[in-house]
Design a binder for these strands. Structure first.
Lengths: 207, 207
DNA sequence: TTGGCGTTGACCACACTAGTCAATACGGTC
DNA sequence: GACCGTATTGACTAGTGTGGTCAACGCCAA
């Protein structure tokens, strides 16, 4: 399907992919312009449509590409032998932030895809997203040692509260970056904060 | 400034305001079309620009209008004499969800405004948002009784965890609505869940 | 009948779109 | 050098839509 494109030398492929991801991430499917993409990638209009049948096909190709890249990187780094929930989730958050700073456009692209409303791609995209969340849901909780938690409250709710806390913590840190226009996540700061909340949560939720 | 517009009969004002809010909320500043707005409002193009100098002025007017409306409604309903943090925050979440179902477009408009990237309005809008968050930040924590909380951990972090939990809980409920295309928040369900988490949190965070 | 205000919508000049295709550049083979 | 086939170009099409203007009209009070 994309053999012509995939036979290109890697450098040119990347130029096109990165330009397209950036444009779609920034503007969404409808408003994104193929003219901007080719300008940014430094290729001609005709070439883009030589490799991809149309805008829609390009977008869906990019979705698969981005998702696979992020998932692979994530599962490569996460440690499933760690059975302590706090440690695993803390680690997961840090990996996520790391990937975010390494691939900001790819992250934004995937995030925006979840809110994409364009009729041209919504159904096809919806199917893929559903399939993927079905697969990944629950994986974070796999093999967790629940025996350490206090047993006077529902442990599932505790797990949720912990997950939410770390998620919100990183969201907060991201917003700070966005507002201060610092453009760089302060990983040391985040690690310290994660550690502090880690302490509060273990004190309150462990036996 | 807007005296011409504000002297209109309320019904026509509302028709214009609602149409404009809906369009901006749905498409963002740049992509929103004044043509669509006048069509939806049932007025002529010329009339819109008779009341508002240009698109930009219209947008900023709407931002102020929406923010004032939501803030007023919120502070009218919240009970500042309730000193129990759990009860206050639980109440705040329910009010928020209530407003959300009552004014979905207005909520979306304000939410989107925080992410607005259009250069034409970004600076002016940024100023207003900063000012407003400065004012409102901390108000939720005013006059809270901290004596009930366990004192072996930092109470500020506990407050954050509680806030985040209820926020995430309502976000989850909203997403469910969005995916199921039910279009209506199940308030009873949300209340029950809030109650359940309320119990877990008091058990773990109170003395 | 006149003046004036509220209102209309055709119209302007332009920006930009996704996609096409004849023409060219280029690399290898004889 | 000639020739071939593939990679690549970018001017072009046909169309949509934009924010904003303005001459003209309807209507009502004086």
């Amino acid at each position: 399907m994309f053999s012509k494109f995939l036979n290109l030398d890697k450098e040119k492929q990347d130029r096109i992919i990165n330009a397209a991801i950036k444009e779609f991430a920034l503007k969404g499917y409808d408003t994104a312009s193929t003219n901007e993409i080719v300008k940014e990638a430094g290729i001609s209009k005709g070439l883009l449509f030589h490799y991809f049948q149309n805008k829609r096909q390009l977008y869906l190709f990019l979705f698969d590409y981005c998702y696979e890249l992020l998932a692979e990187e994530f599962y490569k780094k996460i440690n499933f032998s760690e059975v302590d929930f706090f440690k695993r989730i803390r680690h997961a958050v840090l990996i996520k932030m790391d990937l975010l700073s390494q691939y900001p456009d790819i992250f934004k692209f995937i995030e925006e895809a979840y809110f994409e409303e364009s009729t041209v791609i919504k159904i096809e995209l919806g199917n893929r997203i559903k399939e993927l969340t079905d697969i990944n849901f629950g994986k974070v909780y796999e093999g967790i040692d629940l025996s350490k938690f206090r047993d006077d409250v529902d442990v599932k709710k505790i797990l949720k509260i912990i997950t939410w806390t770390f998620e919100k913590l990183s969201e907060e840190e991201l917003n700070k970056v966005k507002l201060s226009s610092a453009h760089e996540i302060d990983f040391q700061q985040l690690q310290i904060k994660a550690e502090e909340y880690f302490e509060v949560l273990t004190t309150c939720f462990y036996k």
